[in-house]
């Protein structure tokens, strides 16, 4: 029997719903589906309140991933996709969400979702996604004022982090905490190219560096890269971090050290920001559509 290769990059996928809410009594049910390059999320709102969600890896087909993640969020709820009044698709695969009423860019959705998750003191959103890195300036309602992004290169993205986790054989959830287990910060590896960072890391391992120290060198490089983009747009407080890397303390702590202040914290899943923002837009759009229909009558 072939032994299965351990997938260190694999992060925690989950679905959830609130058993205390009865959606059958609801007036408006909306959903946001964020099909990213690496992960997909669905958020279902019942009268504007979160009712269900799911977060999973994106498959080879965007339409299939969209359907899969939405159905997984609805698992055990008795609700079907057809029961949802309005669906907004977002993310890299947003135009390929077959059951969406509309597609909205992930920039707008992330800003809106960040304000919902972290509160209306947010003025800068740092979204560290699977294959891109964005800095968004927004107002207290989550309206986008300006943004910058890097989508051409894996340096500073979740995909880069996965490559490193795989190389070092460290489960991705442990990368952050273990990277902080060093007495002193080592010099960073290349922050311009993940492939160069990878070959440098291999060299350091050969030299006898402990895994934690190599992780620290990589996290530091990644932080430098992210910080440069933040500086380019200018950081206005408060800062909210969304996307998968928001869960990596190795990056968040180092970034806070460089910035000299702390990013906002939340109990909610910051990876849901895009889908959550999309679901909120869906609610507004549905209400508008309904009002127009009434007028027409």
């Amino acid at each position: 029997m072939a032994t299965e290769k351990k997938e260190y990059w694999r992060w925690h996928e989950y679905n959830w719903h609130d058993p205390d809410i009865d959606w059958r009594d609801a007036e408006i049910i909306t959903a946001g589906v964020d099909v990213g390059s690496v992960s997909s999320q669905a958020v279902i709102l019942v009268d504007g309140k979160i009712y269900a969600c799911a977060n999973m890896r994106t498959g080879h087909s965007s339409p299939e991933s969209a359907r899969k993640v939405a159905n997984w969020a609805l698992e055990g709820t008795g609700m079907r996709i057809e029961d949802i009044h309005y669906v907004v698709g977002t993310g890299y695969g947003r135009v390929k969400v077959p059951f969406a009423n509309r597609a909205i860019t992930e920039i707008a959705c992330h800003a809106r979702g960040a304000v919902e998750i972290y509160g209306n003191s947010v003025r800068t959103v740092l979204d560290m996604g699977g294959q891109d890195l964005k800095v968004i300036r927004c107002d207290e309602r989550g309206k986008v004022l300006n943004f910058l992004m890097n989508e051409k290169c894996a340096a500073g993205t979740g995909r880069g982090m996965e490559v490193m986790a795989d190389l070092l054989g460290v489960p991705i959830g442990e990368v952050g905490p273990r990277s902080l287990q060093v007495d002193e910060e080592p010099p960073p590896v290349s922050n311009t190219c993940v492939l160069f960072a990878k070959s440098e890391a291999l060299g350091l391992l050969r030299e006898g560096w402990p895994t934690e120290k190599v992780l620290a060198a990589f996290c530091r490089a990644m932080t430098d890269r992210v910080y440069a983009l933040l500086e380019e747009l200018g950081v206005q407080r408060d800062l909210a971090i969304t996307g998968g890397i928001a869960k990596n303390v190795g990056i968040v702590k180092r970034l806070e050290r460089k910035l000299g202040f702390e990013a906002l914290k939340t109990e909610k899943d910051p990876q849901l920001a895009g889908a959550w923002g999309a679901a909120l837009f869906a609610k507004v759009l549905y209400q508008k559509e309904r009002a127009q229909k009434r007028q027409a009558c």
């Binding site: 390059s37 080879h60 051409k152 894996a154 995909r159 880069g160 190219c193 993940v194 492939l195």
Partner: peptide, 17 residues
């Protein structure tokens, strides 16, 4: 489409699939 080696690798994997 990707310029980045890491992203291009995913594209090549998609082509293989």
């Amino acid at each position: 489409n990707a310029q980045c080696v890491i992203f291009a690798e995913s594209e090549v994997v998609s082509l293989i699939h």
